[in-house]
Nucleic acid binder design. Structure first.
Length: 847
RNA sequence: GCCCGGAUGGCGGAAUCGGUAGACGCGGAGGCCUCAAAAGCCUUUGCCCGAAAGGGCGUGCGGGUUCGAGUCCCGCUCCGGGCACCA
């Protein structure tokens, strides 16, 4: 990066305006503001230290929207806070001994400082931090209400357990090879009692409501796939020899299938290794084999089991015969029952009917275990010659009794109907989505407000005793256990119900819980009695424009959608809309050498050096101009030169608006009226100015900031040429309009230089300056063309361009085109077969 | 494997409805200014042929529709991302 002389004192001017916006509370907005509402929000950041380029990009887009919408006359809610709970602070505490709060507060101060230095403006009165006691209180109140409503519950769940760290890990902390990211130990599966939120109760609504959202289609698709609705049937398969006639209770195995039409092709059935009936249904002779499969499954992590690494679907599936058989309800035939780890206990009923001919996984297992396949759908001709295998496409039913001849759709319906009339099955919908496990064996998170009493069991902490706060005098030793579990003062308490001795829950909540309602807290950040006042939330919600990284496309956005609905349903958000983010924009990420730029990758380029060299405005301009906001971009060797170019542009702008014009007077001042400025010049410049307003406004509305920057640069180039026209340029008034327009349009993009130059031209800083102005309107009468370029083609090839009046009629255009020398020469005496005329843009002569 | 994006000059990108491909910028070349440099300013810059005028070619590849295709359709290639035993 080259340090070059600037036309103006960038640092001083930028700091001056930043201080002013802060001191004057320019972007503070009250809940009773009479203007129409607009809620602009960037995802609140995890405070990891000074801003990096990803932040700069994100908050530049957000700031543009805040300033633009404000100029359009909205009361814009622009809050910012910090997602301040989380693992890095706790790990730092273990390493350095510093309390996570001290660590976190220091990181917040750094991040906040660098966002202020970017010129991003917020209503800082509304700042929230996940670890503030008032916020903890809100999170805990919500937890208790969910508990009361049955939306929070406690259950035993398999978790990733690291024997080295002696703690539960999040899935993200388990590496692809099944080891702990910190200790490297092989992670085990353990069953522990954990807290869950019942997000699955909202699966259908969360899925159905996606259609109406103004979100990127790919994000909606990701959510749809994540929720994973599948329709089918559950049916009972009677176990052979267990019909109850021998005195033992009758037994059957419930399975789920999306293809009930293929039941005639069932050649075996499978239970998950964890299925509760495995013991009962395994015969002594088969016990050893079954136990081996169970053991293998238990030692593998969920990730290992469900990813292709090494033991993919192609490889022979791990499974064993149980010795039992189950009966096909349509045919009465018995088929062998297996245990295999390709069936998951957590989905459906944990057991399946296997139809190798129409399911690839079953086909692979059947081949590996010498089981037969019976086709129930006729594959297309040549299928068997091409290698055969499972065929899951459309076709006509065969070998299927009463279903023969039907297409798959009607066959499914008929099969379900038959199962229901036989009383052995029902139409069922299953979801891939699981309930949200929120327990974390961590210190630096929101404590779960529950007490365990030997007589009363788990008892919620009464709301008037909230917040439950973690003590400060804890030792952050690397025991691998939350310090809360070994802090007697915190742990020992009394039962709120019976008053007897009890212990506190020592787990904390997943930090995604904090981020699932912060946008509601921003509406009413100071209230102490409830998480937020519903009337304040009704005033601002939903968020009109939400900006954040695509990495949150599933979890955060889904949890927040669930929370908003749940909060309405438990009475904490009465009358608030059920959908939190009306529009979501996912900005592209910044890559370097092919990987995402991030702190953990160690390839951060800090913005601070650019603040010093070219300034925040230039860096903002760069991020706006470099490409479509939704696209990723690569930070390369050339990037610094592009950023320098943005600085040079602002220098040029500065000189244009402050230097003496050719007449020797300040541009825009009355004295600068150029005698004899041709009316044509004025008309042309006014047209350009009003077209610029039209273009930039349209660009902003469709989020095309890169073309907005291009349009502004074009205008500056034009103005530079005009001013240099030495005495023949436009009049001062028209020039003044052009300059003011430029500053108004730049105000959301490069706010500092726009504010400063506006102030120098108008001296109205006390009145709020350029950012208090109304966004300019363009005059359609002024943007109209005087002439347009008409393209003349012969056989689709460009041959000539002519200037014509916009209102030219077809015969005139045709005649004009056919009379052109080029066209006459090209025709060489031939008669055109056809003349395509699209006035006023194009004539195509076809011979 | 499935789903979703994307491919345009040396580079980032523009072309919003099927109608001038390459806006704007970066880089390059030449020039002005200067003792010299930096900065600034001017000219030029898709490729090929040509002294020029001019002509030809050109939006990943192969076909198609159309008077006309970067844009629409069919079939591929490569790159990026998400999901991945979900029955």
């Amino acid at each position: 990066m080259l340090v070059v002389p600037k036309a103006y004192d960038v640092d001083a001017i930028e700091r001056k305006w930043q201080a002013r916006w802060l001191a004057e509370g320019t972007y503070e907005v009250d809940n009773d503001d009479p203007r129409p509402s607009f809620y602009a929000l960037c995802m609140y950041p995890y405070p990891s230290g000074p801003a990096h380029q990803g932040h700069v990009r994100n908050y530049t887009f957000g700031d543009l929207i805040v300033r633009y919408r404000t100029m359009l006359g909205y009361a814009v809610l622009s809050p910012l806070g910090f997602d301040s709970f989380g693992l890095p602070a706790e790990n730092a505490a273990i390493k350095t001994g510093a309390h996570p709060r001290a660590f976190t507060d220091a990181r917040i101060a750094e991040l906040k400082e660098s966002l202020v230095r970017l010129g991003a403006v917020y209503d800082w009165r509304r700042e929230v931090r996940s670890h503030d006691p008032s916020y903890i209180r809100g999170t805990q109140t919500i937890f208790l209400r969910l508990l009361e409503a049955g939306l929070a519950y406690r259950a035993t769940a398999p978790v990733n357990w690291c024997p080295g760290c002696q703690t539960v890990l999040a899935n993200e902390q388990v590496l692809a090879d099944g080891t702990c990211e910190r200790s490297g130990d092989l992670v085990e599966r353990r069953d522990l009692e954990q807290w869950f939120f019942r997000i699955t109760a909202y699966a259908d609504e969360l899925l159905a409501a996606l259609d109406a959202l103004d979100w990127p289609e790919r994000v909606k698709t990701m959510q749809r796939n994540w929720i994973g609705r599948s329709e089918g049937a559950e049916l009972d398969l009677a176990v052979s020899g267990r019909d109850g006639s021998d005195g033992r209770p009758a037994l059957s195995l419930r399975v789920f299938t999306t293809r009930p039409d293929t039941l005639f092709g069932m050649t075996y059935a499978v239970m998950a290794p964890e299925h509760p009936l495995v013991d009962e249904l395994t015969t002594p002779a088969q016990r050893a084999g079954v136990d081996e499969v169970r053991q293998l499954a238990a030692s593998a992590t969920e990730i290992e089991r469900t990813t292709a690494g090494g033991t993919g679907p192609e490889a022979a599936k791990r499974g064993a015969f149980t010795g039992s058989h189950v009966v096909n309800p349509f045919t009465g035939a018995a088929v062998p029952l297996y245990v295999a780890d390709y069936v998951l206990m957590g989905y459906g009923t944990g057991a399946i009917m296997a139809v190798p001919a129409e399911d690839e996984r079953d086909w692979a297992f059947a081949r590996a275990h010498g089981l037969p396949a019976v086709r129930t759908v006729a594959p297309p001709p040549g299928w068997e010659d091409a290698g055969g295998g499972a065929f899951s496409g459309d076709g006509v039913k065969i070998n299927s009794g009463f279903l023969d001849g039907l297409e798959i759709g009607p066959a499914k319906a008929a099969a379900i109907e038959r199962l229901e009339s036989l009383g052995v099955g029902t139409r069922t919908v299953h979801y891939r989505l699981r309930d949200w496990l929120v327990s974390r064996q961590r210190f630096w998170g929101c404590p779960i407000p529950v007490v365990y009493c030997p007589t009363d069991g788990p008892v919620p902490v009464p709301e008037d005793q909230l917040p439950v706060l973690a003590p400060d005098d804890v030792a952050f030793a690397p025991t691998g256990q939350s310090p809360l579990a070994s802090h007697e003062g915190f742990l020992r308490t009394t039962c709120p119900r019976c008053g007897g001795p009890a212990t506190r829950e020592t787990d904390t909540m997943d930090t995604f819980v904090d981020s699932s309602w912060y946008f509601l807290r921003f509406c009413d950040p100071l209230g102490q009695q409830v998480p937020f006042d519903p009337s304040a939330a009704r005033r601002w919600m939903p968020v009109d424009h939400y900006i954040g990284g695509i990495e949150h496309a599933i979890l955060h956005l889904l949890y927040a959608r669930f929370f908003t609905r749940a909060l309405v349903d438990v009475g904490l958000a009465e009358g608030v809309g059920r959908e939190p983010f009306a529009k979501y924009f996912a900005q592209g990420m910044i890559r370097m050498d092919g990987t995402k730029m991030s702190k953990s990758k160690g390839n951060l380029i800090a913005p601070s050096a650019y603040y010093a060299s070219v300034g925040a405005d230039a860096l903002r301009l760069f991020h706006l101009a470099v490409g479509p906001p939704a696209d990723d971009f690569d930070w390369t060797d050339q990037t610094d030169e592009v950023i320098d170019g943005c600085g040079r542009f602002l220098d040029r702008l500065w000189r244009l608006l402050t230097a003496d014009p050719p007449t020797g007077d300040l541009p825009g001042s009355e004295a600068a009226v150029t005698p004899g400025a041709p009316a044509d010049e004025d008309r042309a410049l006014r047209r350009a100015t009003h077209r610029l307003i039209e273009a930039v406004t349209a660009d902003f509305e469709r989020g095309s900031y890169n073309t907005a920057v291009a349009h502004v640069r074009e205008h500056v180039n034009l103005l530079q040429r005009s001013v240099r026209a030495d005495g023949r340029g436009p009049s001062a008034a028209v020039l003044g309009e052009a300059y003011d327009t430029l500053l108004l349009l730049l105000a959301p993009m490069t706010p500092h230089i726009a504010a400063e130059l506006w102030d120098r031209r108008h001296h109205d800083g006390d009145a709020g300056g350029v950012h208090a102005q109304r966004w300019p309107d363009f005059d359609p009468a002024l943007t109209a063309d005087e002439t347009v370029t008409m393209v003349v083609q012969v056989n689709g090839k460009l041959r000539e361009r002519v200037e014509v009046v916009p209102g030219i009629d077809e015969p005139t255009a045709s005649e004009l085109a056919l009379g052109l020398d080029k066209v006459v020469a090209e025709l060489a005496g031939r008669t055109p077969r056809r003349v395509v005329v699209r006035v006023p843009r194009l004539v195509n002569v076809v011979v």
